[in-house]
Computed example of a mutant assay.
Amino acid sequence: MRNVLTAGLVALILGAAAAGAQESSPPPPNPKIAATLPVVAPVPDPAASPAVAPPAPPPVTEAAVAAEESAAKRAAKTEPACKPGFGCVTNLPLPRFVSLKGDEGNARRGPGLTHRIDWVFTRPGMPLMITAEYENWRRVEDQDGAGGWVHYALLSGVRSVVVAQDMAELRATPDRDARVVAQAEIGVVARILQCTADWCRISSGGEKGWVEKTAIWGVLPGEVIE
Rank of each mutant, 00 (worst) to 15 (best):
Q143E: 08
S160C: 12
R201A: 12
I130E: 06
G187Q: 13
A153M: 10
Y134G: 07
Q183L: 03
Q194Y: 12
A197D: 15
A182H: 02
L154I: 09
V150Q: 02
P174V: 09
L193E: 11
A172T: 03
V158D: 15
V150T: 03
W210D: 11
I130P: 03
V180R: 03
L193K: 15
P174D: 05
A190P: 00
I186K: 15
D166I: 07
R171T: 09
A172C: 04
V162H: 05
A182C: 04
S160W: 14
R138A: 06
Y134H: 15
G209C: 05
G148T: 01
K213Y: 13
D175A: 11
C195Q: 10
E135H: 13
A197F: 08
G147Y: 02
E135T: 12
T214S: 15
W210T: 15
H151N: 12
E135G: 14
Q143K: 04
M167P: 00
G205R: 12
H151R: 08
L193S: 13
A182I: 02
R138N: 05
E169M: 13
V211A: 11
R176H: 11
V162A: 13
I192M: 15
G147C: 02
S156V: 07
C200E: 11
A184N: 01
D166L: 08
K208H: 04
A197W: 13
Y134C: 05
I186T: 02
Q183A: 06
Q143N: 03
I192G: 07
V180L: 06
A178G: 13
A132H: 11
L128P: 09
V150G: 05
A172V: 03
Q165I: 10
Q183V: 01
K208F: 04
D198I: 06
E185K: 13
A172S: 10
E169K: 15
E133Q: 06
W137L: 02
D144P: 02
A168V: 05
L154C: 12
H151V: 05
E135I: 08
A184G: 00
D198Q: 10
A184Q: 07
A164I: 02
E169C: 09
R201E: 12
R191P: 00
G147S: 06
S204V: 04
E207M: 14
G209N: 03
